[in-house]
């Protein structure tokens, strides 16, 4: 579980996050949704400490992340995995080396154990016979899957995904979404996903935080989203004609 208490973050005079308090639950896919520029990426990067927050507190299962020194943060980071918006695979390494990397750096496994783990993770995300290809030689969808494999290599307790299915076709997007959800359940991780894809919301939105202009505007589940009176959320979620119709049918 990850808990945020009154988190504020600004860049120079630009206030990006305003007093955000929320609970992200373990074993669930927690979604952060909002318009482009609303602060999703900044929020995610603040949670993992790539941005220093101005005020507020962040707890990882009751451990106060904000109060930790560099060394304890480093330790807790080995319990985190992250899938970046563009995949962020290391260009200079093959698929296999990318997944092997965190194991090489931080695990005490033997070489064969490490390779077993690499192949387990790649298998888990359905990447086969591509171990020796380089990131530029595989498709965008495959890159995302390798990124997921790398993120789960060290068996993280916390998984973060920044728009894991942006730039993918609808079918592959759903495959990725479902994969993340399955992995979350399988390993009881606390997973936080940034998205502005409504399909994802409907597919895996077990817990949803809607932010608008840096404020927490709404939180709930995908079922509750149909009954909301929140104007900003309505405008965001039911922007498309299709979802307008779905909403009508649902009511």
């Amino acid at each position: 579980m990850i808990t945020l208490k009154n988190v504020n973050k600004s860049f120079a005079s630009l206030k990006v996050l305003n007093d955000i308090s929320v609970n992200f639950e373990a074993g669930k896919t927690n979604l952060i949704i909002g318009q482009s520029g609303s602060g999703k990426t900044v929020l995610l990067k603040s949670i993992i400490g790539l941005h220093e927050i101005d005020s507020g507190k962040i707890f990882y299962s009751d451990r106060d992340f904000t109060a930790m020194n560099l060394k304890s943060r480093k330790n807790i980071r080995q319990e985190m995995g992250m899938v970046f918006q563009g995949g962020a695979l290391f260009d200079s390494m093959s698929v296999e080396e990318n997944v092997l990397f965190p194991l090489d750096m931080f695990s005490k496994m033997s070489d064969t154990e490490k390779m077993d783990r690499v192949n387990f993770c790649l298998n888990r995300v359905n990447i086969k016979n591509s171990n020796h290809l380089y990131p530029t030689e595989i498709s965008g969808g495959m890159q995302k899957r390798v990124a997921i494999a790398r993120a789960i290599a060290l068996n993280p307790k916390y998984l973060f995904c920044d728009e894991p299915n942006s730039g993918l076709d609808p079918v592959t997007a759903i495959v990725i979404d479902n994969l993340i959800q399955e992995i979350t359940k399988e390993f009881n991780m606390t997973t936080i996903i940034n998205t502005h894809d409504m399909n994802s919301v409907m597919e895996i939105g077990e817990k949803i935080l809607f932010i608008s202009k840096g404020f927490k505007a709404w939180e709930g589940t995908k079922e509750e989203i149909f009954d909301t009176d929140n104007q900003a959320l309505n405008d965001f979620v039911f922007a498309s004609d299709l979802y307008q119709k779905i909403k009508k049918v649902n009511r």
């Binding site: 990067k45 993992i48 790539l50 943060r73 480093k74 330790n75 980071r77 080995q78 985190m80 992250m82 970046f84 918006q85 563009g86 962020a88 695979l89 290391f90 260009d91 990397f101 965190p102 750096m105 931080f106 973060f160």
Partner: peptide
């Protein structure tokens, strides 16, 4: 520089490197 803009450096940092 290209590692920075493609977030590969962030990826290292989040791993604790």
């Amino acid at each position: 520089g290209s590692m920075r803009v493609t977030e590969q450096i962030d990826a290292l940092e989040i791993m604790g490197v």
